[in-house]
């Protein structure tokens, strides 16, 4: 037991995490202390460092909230609040999650369709591929608010505009990964299919598609993280009143740092669990297909 623990990465990860938390607390004291000194000076009181220390941990609007404050806020807004309440973080996370998943599904389908087209038509390969790459150098996230506002102006609102941004971000990794994956069978295997007199459809379903699955899942992991970012940024314009992005914006307007940090942590948790989920499905599928190492 101990030996496997020492060999694996559990202990190093724990040590590094602890180091980060300790560093965080040090930063809390360092960044929040000036405010307390200022307060004491105004009250014409002498204040010692040991008096400052506990106070920096419990400010109402700290420059940097302490980890336990963030954890308490998350606990308060997830477990103790009704799920349907507007102040519940679960509610906001759900709004973000639903547009993420919708955009992710569209993006994956579009990416696969583009990849299939590119692999089968040389014309598409030469004309479309450079533009797919160029499309990603356009900072879509930066113009996301505009897309939302403009789509709102024509009457499309709610989930779809945000899902559109998620789709734009997530189709790219899928398309690039799938082009690579569908081309991964080598000449030997392709020739073998030729000797079987396989049709184009058979070649696709029996050779190209199965051999592209590992590539597909690698890109899906990138794509789902990207669509979450897209959904959050899509919620930034002032029109949005719910979702993690709206929480971030509201927090920054009212100087509620604890609220910002708790929304950030919720987003991080969401991203981690989505990537983890894709990873689990990845392993399951590869095992069923007999490709797991």
């Amino acid at each position: 037991m101990l030996k496997t623990l020492a060999k694996g990465s559990t202990i190093p990860v724990l040590v590094v995490t602890t180091a980060i938390i300790v560093f965080w607390y040090a930063c809390v004291v360092w960044l929040n202390a000036p405010f307390e000194r200022d307060q004491a000076e105004r009250a014409k009181k002498e204040i010692t460092f040991s008096q400052i220390l506990p106070k920096t941990m419990e400010q109402k609007r700290p420059v940097l909230p302490a980890p336990h404050q963030v954890v308490r806020e998350i606990w308060k807004t997830t477990v103790l609040k009704n799920v349907t309440s507007k102040r519940s973080l679960v509610y906001h996370a759900w709004i973000t999650l639903s547009s993420t998943l919708l955009g992710f599904a569209f993006g994956t389908l579009l990416g696969i369709a583009l990849a299939v087209g590119i692999v089968h038509s040389q014309t598409l390969d030469k004309s479309l591929m450079p533009w797919i790459i160029t499309s990603q150098t356009i900072p879509i996230l930066a113009i996301a608010p505009m897309i939302i506002v403009v789509l709102n102006a024509v009457g499309i609102s709610g989930l779809l505009p945000k899902a559109f941004i998620s789709m734009y971000l997530s189709f790219f990794p899928v398309a690039v990964g799938m082009v690579k994956g569908l081309r991964s069978p080598d000449i030997m295997q392709l020739d073998l299919m030729h000797t079987y007199n396989a049709s184009k459809a058979q070649l696709f379903w029996k050779l190209r598609w199965p051999s592209s699955i590992p590539f597909l899942f690698t890109s899906l992991k990138v794509a789902i993280a990207a669509s979450l970012v897209g959904a959050i940024v899509g919620e930034l314009p002032t029109g949005a009143i719910s979702g993690l992005g709206a929480r971030l914006l509201a927090g920054s307007y009212y100087g509620q740092t604890i609220q910002i940090w708790s929304a950030l942590f919720m987003a991080a948790f969401l991203a981690a669990s989505l990537v983890w989920l894709v990873g689990v499905i990845d392993r399951r599928v590869l095992k069923r297909m007999g490709m797991a190492q």
């Binding site: 990860v13 590094v16 996230l141 740092t257 910002i260 991080a268 991203a271």
Partner: peptide, 21 residues
């Protein structure tokens, strides 16, 4: 061993959210 899993995790996080802070 300790930093890489965390680095990989953070690289997938929506860091743009740090902007207001």
């Amino acid at each position: 061993k300790g930093l890489m899993p965390i680095g990989n995790l953070v690289a997938a996080l929506p860091i743009v959210g740090m902007a207001p802070i």
